[in-house]
Design a binder for these strands. Structure first.
Lengths: 225, 225
DNA sequence: GTCTATAGACGGATAGAC
DNA sequence: GTCTATCCGTCTATAGAC
């Protein structure tokens, strides 16, 4: 194993992945050509096909690189909390923080490109039809099942069909917050001071989400039972 | 003004706009070619350039057609509420319903293509860099200013810098809910029964959002003042 | 592993007949 | 207003030299 022989390979792969995260985040998948991508990554045009096989395979590798550790961290954090709780039900607050924590960790990682990925991820949630959505769905299945069970214990009075909507809202708020922060701040007018203060953002999100999760459903005039 | 002469023009324009809403929603702007679009709309390939000038101009026309009436309705509804209130501050509930109502109205309009537009809109919020984002931002400026003022009155104890984040979360939840409902239901597993019951969705969203808006900010260990 | 060159398909836009 | 034919650029992917 020569040192000079394997390092460039990993460097090229990594440089492609990092650049792809940024460009896909900025311009979308269809909006980013392999020509621009490889030029921006300072690698050869043929390198993507050599290392990943195709553009689609690159996208899949890109998501797996970040999502596998992120969801593993989410489950590990929930495991840790439940062991510490020794049978006591967790609070919604704790569960929410365990879920959004790994996202915010990546969000703070501006230098390593984690922030690019997080924004790309939020963007991708709202893109239907693509095989990517199916891939993401698969990667999330175990995590979602795990968190749904935890929330059911934490919110025993929540009707069965209701919880799935609350999780949906929670999920949406998180995805959107991470993905579109700049857009809304542009719409609403906001100074870029603590825009990326992940700790404060975690507090803000947790306060908002926990209150929303706990809220009783106030129904207006209903027609039938 | 011959009857036969002007009707086909409007029909072609409308058919292009309706088809574009659906295809852009499904595949994105870059992912939808003029060839596929015109074929699907059963119009000639050159028709888009004849009627709109370019693909970009078509996109702008598409957004203006829906957003202008929608935001006008939002402002009109708030005006109406404030007149009825005769000086009393509105409740967050009322304000939230005034804001999300017009979206849900479009959401219910499956036949007229409103639902396609709503999902396209949610999708577009998370797409940075494009001129479309700037256009949308401009179209929203008056509405956002109006609602920010109303919420400041409704939530007098909310610190100044905090409200903008709550609005951000509210906005995100709405956008995401409308845009990605199918995705999350795919991830989380949910039956498609009352998926598009807008009335129930309004109740759910309002309960969730009002609780989140009102929630005090619970801060964890803080470093400095 | 990296590069150049190119194949082969598809993109938006338009000219000009009808 | 509608249509066909076409220009010209860009796309992904690959073959083959080094």
């Amino acid at each position: 194993m020569s040192l000079r022989a394997v390092k460039p390979q990993h460097e090229t792969r990594t440089r492609i992945l990092d650049t792809a995260e940024e460009l896909f985040m900025l311009h979308g998948f269809e909006g980013t050509s392999m020509r621009v991508l490889t030029a921006s990554a300072a690698v050869n045009l043929a390198a993507v096909n050599y290392h990943f096989g195709s553009k689609d395979a690159l996208i899949e590798a890109l998501f797996r690189r970040r999502l596998d550790p992120m969801n593993a961290a989410r489950i590990a954090e929930l495991d840790r909390l439940e062991i510490d709780a020794k049978g006591r039900a967790l609070s919604p607050d704790e569960i929410i923080r365990a879920f959004i924590g790994p996202s915010l960790l990546l969000m703070e990682d501006a230098k390593g490109g984690g922030r690019n990925f997080i924004r790309l991820l939020g963007r991708t949630y709202t893109e239907p039809t693509k095989p990517i959505r199916v891939l993401i769905g698969q990667l999330y299945v175990p995590t979602m099942a795990r968190y749904k069970a935890a929330l059911e214990r934490a919110l025993p009075h929540m009707p069965g069909g209701e919880l799935i909507w609350r999780m949906h809202f929670m999920f949406g708020t998180l995805a959107y917050t991470l993905a579109a922060t700049d857009t809304v701040q542009l719409i609403a007018g906001c100074k870029p001071e603590d825009r990326y203060d992940a700790r404060l953002l975690e507090d803000r999100l947790t306060s908002f989400l926990a209150a929303g999760l706990n809220a009783p459903l106030k129904q207006t005039v209903k027609k039938a039972a």
